[in-house]
């Protein structure tokens, strides 16, 4: 039986599927408005995130990848643009490797998911073992720009009275679920990198220049492992460029969608 999912749907037109990172896509995210001018956004929450229940037998990246392949198979249109953010970028990369028939192109935004450096190099700051204020510093170009109602890495350091109890319960649930999927190896699949060569749709790897969770150099290596992939950076943005620089983010995505659409 397919898991029940919370799904945010906005706009009309070409399908744009968002694969969220550590938190579901907020309806208040500032990039949503401009992006809906260019397509119909579909943003499911992974099992265990937001209001999506966690099925009892669901707990690994293997489960997530097959679920997201199901989601794509079940969408009515083809030529889908899939955009994965951070942890969701890892999922999107795994899904693209599986070559779902309706996938038209992929955008990976500061994705995790592969191992680049040596065995003593930490490619990805540890999400769970790092102090919240240090995560906040590493994840954002300027934490003062975090949009209201949106949460990225280091959210524990900004808990205040403006957050509702419902927000906090949801964040706790998201954090638990993320850990279940990605505690070890922390935030990557040791077998994914060599299989990235299977990705056969146009791919844009987009990176916040100030990301200190996973560096732009990691992003360049990621892009190099995907045939024909393009690597671009966004200035004045960290691990969540779609939240820190929504206009620049949407511009890059729309340009990529235009360039990769057959006339």
């Amino acid at each position: 039986m397919k898991p029940e999912l919370e799904i945010l749907r906005i706009g009309n037109g070409r399908p744009i599927l968002l694969v969220h990172g550590i938190a579901p896509v907020s309806p208040r995210a500032p990039f949503l408005g401009p992006l809906t001018q260019h397509g119909a956004i579909v943003a499911p929450s992974h099992p265990g995130f937001g209001a999506s229940p966690m099925p009892p037998d669901f707990e690994t990246m293997y489960d997530l990848v097959h679920l997201w392949c199901d989601i794509i198979d079940d969408m009515p249109d083809d030529d889908i643009t899939m955009i994965g953010f951070g942890f969701g970028g890892w999922i999107a990369a795994e899904v693209a490797v599986a070559r779902p028939r309706k996938l038209g192109r992929t955008v990976l935004v500061d994705p995790v998911g592969i191992k680049i450096g040596g065995r003593e190099d930490r490619d990805i700051a540890h999400f769970f073992n790092t102090r919240p204020d240090e995560l906040l510093r590493r994840a954002w170009h300027d934490p003062k720009t975090i949009p209201p109602g949106c949460y990225g890495l280091g959210w524990q350091a900004v808990i205040d009275d403006s957050m509702t109890d419902t927000d906090i319960v949801t964040l706790a649930r998201n954090w638990d679920s993320l850990c279940l999927y990605a505690w070890t190896p922390h935030m990557y699949n040791p077998r994914l990198k060599p299989w990235l060569r299977r990705i056969d749709v146009p791919t844009l790897v987009l990176w916040g220049e100030s990301d200190q969770i996973v560096s732009p150099d990691y992003g360049r290596a990621y892009a190099q492992a995907i045939p024909g992939a393009r690597f671009e950076t966004i200035a004045a943005a960290g691990h969540h460029p779609e939240l820190e620089q929504p206009a620049a983010f949407v511009d890059r995505v729309v340009q990529f969608m235009t360039e990769t659409t057959k006339p």
Binding site: F128, N129, P132, Q156, T170, W175, D176, C179, W183
Partner: peptide, 15 residues
């Protein structure tokens, strides 16, 4: 440290 205690996943029920 808080990341090893109250913010550790699974440490407390989300509610």
């Amino acid at each position: 440290a808080p990341q090893f205690s109250k913010f550790q996943p699974g440490a407390i029920a989300p509610e």
